[in-house]
């Protein structure tokens, strides 16, 4: 996939040239491109003079980053303790069956990416599924499939 290198530069040059900026820049890449592109890492490495391997290691270490493009909508199923106790595993399995993908994967039509996340901190709503910015509390294997239909 071709990446707009001008966008990359806009992001990189928007920050102070310090190692403290690496993580925020990668976060901006993720938001802009829905993943951390190889070209972005290379360019950042060149401009900052930080070894490519180091930046790549960060992109593989932190969960906020994906090295492959994400779908148009991201489904985050909360796997916090309260959600686990209240049936989150059933909810994940139902989504897996419906979309035929596993957590960490993206549907072929790039409509959805499925992720499991540790705790979104809204335990009162357990089990919680966050689709893009929308929180769905009290999710079940039943109602989550209906909610998926709202996203095209």
């Amino acid at each position: 996939m071709a990446i707009d290198i001008q966008k990359v530069d806009e992001i990189v040059f928007g920050y102070e040239q310090s190692k403290e900026s690496l993580l925020p820049i990668l976060q901006d890449f993720q938001r802009e491109f829905s993943y951390v592109p190889e070209e972005g890492i290379k360019r950042l490495s060149d401009i900052f003079g930080v070894p490519e391997s180091r930046i790549y290691a960060m992109a593989t270490f932190y969960k906020a980053f994906s090295l492959v493009p994400k779908g148009r909508h991201t489904i985050k199923v909360c796997m916090g303790t309260a959600c686990h106790l209240k049936g989150a595993p059933f909810v994940v399995e139902a989504i897996e069956r419906e979309l035929k993908i596993k957590p960490g994967q993206t549907t072929e039509d790039r409509r959805f990416s499925l992720e499991t996340v540790n705790c979104v901190g809204t335990c009162a709503l357990a089990p919680v599924v966050v689709i893009d910015e929308d929180y769905y509390g009290g999710s079940t294997s039943e109602n989550i499939i209906k909610n998926l239909k709202r996203y095209t």
Binding site: M58, F61, Y62, A64
Partner: peptide, 22 residues
């Protein structure tokens, strides 16, 4: 901003993370 790593709640890992490291 953290990068999504529970271990960064550990103080020495957190400080490495602020400094732009794993």
């Amino acid at each position: 901003r953290g990068g999504g790593a529970f271990v960064c709640g550990e103080s020495s890992a957190l400080m490495r993370s602020i400094g732009g490291n794993v």
